[in-house]
Design a binder for these strands. Structure first.
Lengths: 339, 339
DNA sequence: TCCGTCGATGTAATCGATTCCACGAGCACT
DNA sequence: AGTGCTCGTGGAATCGATTACATCGACGGA
């Protein structure tokens, strides 16, 4: 592959001049410029990004460590992140942690070794020493969706409080009283927070969330299935199950279907995270929708701000309830969506 | 960030010795080794992958350019690719072409500029000059799922011929005679091939696939919706629609639902690519399942073989039909799956 | 005419690693 | 004792870019 030296030789100038043309530095003659460009063209020269990065100490690359690629919420996030980054002149390297702290660390280490300019993370756990070190060392970082409390890093996330309150009101209005949750890992902020917010909202209606009705999941489908099985095995199963993410809701559907039961007649279901498929499931699933694309874009903007020396602020956007049929038919015509 | 020089100074040896320890070269004394390792530890030193790549001309990185991240088939593929690559000591950089040739070229160029060791592509079109140049220049490459005919690059893919034949037999057995397809872009091999195979299978039953019943889609949901609308507007709509991928099937479901019609009573539906959600859609969708994970792993193995100087062969694995309820109830108990 | 300035260019240092080559010490063999 | 190993080590070149600094010619003003 042709290097800058080959171009210089072909154009009959020095490598410095070639570099100046390529980075459109002002002081280069029109004549030299055209000769260099012709040489670039004829050799099919492309600058070596590795060499450039070594010299300039910039890779124009962002690292994105997401919790689970198989989760449509995160793939949509990844997509919007890449789009916005591209618009700002950056590329993105994605690492999939698969909800495993060790894999998360593997990817963070790998990305740091590659000297990415900044890191976007939705942490799977309470904060590995590795990540804390990176923050301390001054690596530009932004948390998205989930975060690590007590670390001075901007957080871009959705606030589900109002939507969860709407959901509980909806459930209450349909007559449901025995309500259960499939929680995410307690090591994650979203894992804890969604349970707390849900419990508070229930209390406002005088309902509580007993131990037996809080199942511990890990945000992946299999755990949703397992926890739901447990609920169905209880002497008095819940009337509704709220899954803290879409994959655990999928697992819950699996469990219900495996027993030959029906949603919502035998047991109702709601989920955090709305995805396109929920419109077409049997029945369509009531869910809390996050402004996923906007979150991804805001996170990139915050990170690039940090990288380029501007402040880079936290952003919180509201989530909203999308009512469908999985919790039962509304007696009154409340807001109903089919999209 | 500490460099190899800092480590050398701290350990009281030369950079050459540090490098030897790090790459466990045999001829280095036990004493020097322990001093170096201690220095590495105390400085928290991590080798700069950028510098290393520049010197060795290896990045230990594979590029993966996929057609659409929002397609669960491709995210599953991406996941298995990353897993296998990691096992073999490589990282993966994913580029999402979003079914757009220009974006595909953008990513290919970006990856080549980064001097990735090899490229895994499922091309969105018939072959951009850029990609052909890369092949000619000797970049190790492997096509996965889709390929470009006439280019000497290993192809790892599923053969859907038998499964499509099974599908047609199934449809025929259920009494369907007016059969339509939502095709993928003619510029892609899978786009063309699935139509041809389907048409051939129909002919074996004496059925044909008229022009009006072959809709042109682009593998994305919106096109599936649009084409299905067209079918439903016909004076004599088809009895079955076969979508050439899962996203177009989703779009078809959208169209059917928007008219207040039901699958399979008003119109039956089948899809290429099976995904978890198809079990829970209303109704569960009959689909052709590819061995996605195995394809991803085989593709990585073939690519790494090429990179490391071994042959690296094409692989074709069979797809299989998974019958569910979206084409109507089987009169006879044929193979039926609920998973 | 001379000097200062400016524009265009080249030389060489530099980034952080790897690796070829040279060198000295220690040891075995003759 | 001299020769020829091997082993451990350091010096320095190298990868492909960017960029500080030096140089040189032209030109304008005094």
């Amino acid at each position: 592959m042709a290097s800058i030296k080959d171009v210089a030789a072909e154009a009959g100038v020095s490598v410095a001049t070639v570099s100046r043309v390529l980075n459109d530095h002002p002081s280069v003659s029109a004549d030299a410029r055209t000769r260099v460009l012709a040489a670039v063209e004829s050799l099919g020269y492309r600058p070596n990004a590795v060499a450039r990065s070594l010299r300039t100490d910039q890779t124009h690359t962002l690292g994105l460590v997401i919790s689970d690629v198989l989760n449509p919420y995160f793939t949509e996030l990844a997509r919007s992140v890449e789009e916005e980054a591209r618009a700002l002149g950056y590329s993105v390297i994605i690492g999939n942690a698969d909800e495993r702290p060790d894999l998360q660390d593997h990817h963070v280490r790998n990305l740091l070794d590659r000297r990415i300019d900044g890191l976007l993370v939705s942490p799977t756990d309470g904060g590995s020493p590795l990540m804390l070190d990176a923050v301390r060392a001054g690596t530009p970082m932004v948390f998205v969706d989930r975060w690590i409390p007590g670390v001075d890093v901007p957080v871009v996330r959705a606030d589900g409080r109002a939507a969860v309150r709407d959901l509980v009101a909806h459930l209450y209005g349909l007559g449901h009283r025995r309500v259960a949750i499939i929680a995410g890992p307690a090591a994650t902020t979203t894992g804890r927070e969604r349970v707390e917010v849900f419990r508070e909202a229930l209390q406002e209606h005088g309902l509580d969330l007993p131990e037996a009705y809080t199942g511990q999941g890990d945000f992946q489908a299999e755990s949703g299935r397992r926890v739901t099985e447990g609920f169905l095995d209880l002497a008095e199963p819940p009337e509704v199950v709220f899954a803290a993410d879409n994959l655990m809701a999928l697992g819950a559907l699996d469990a219900v279907r495996a027993r030959g039961l029906r949603v919502p007649d035998d047991i109702a279901l709601a989920a955090f995270d709305d995805i396109r498929w929920f419109v077409h499931t049997d029945p369509p699933v009531t869910a809390i929708a996050q402004p996923t694309g906007e979150l991804g874009r805001a996170a990139v903007r915050a990170l690039v701000d940090r990288i380029e020396g501007r402040p880079g602020e936290s952003v919180t956007l509201p989530a909203r309830l999308v009512v469908r049929r999985s919790c039962g038919e509304s007696p009154s015509p409340v807001q109903r969506s089919t999209t």
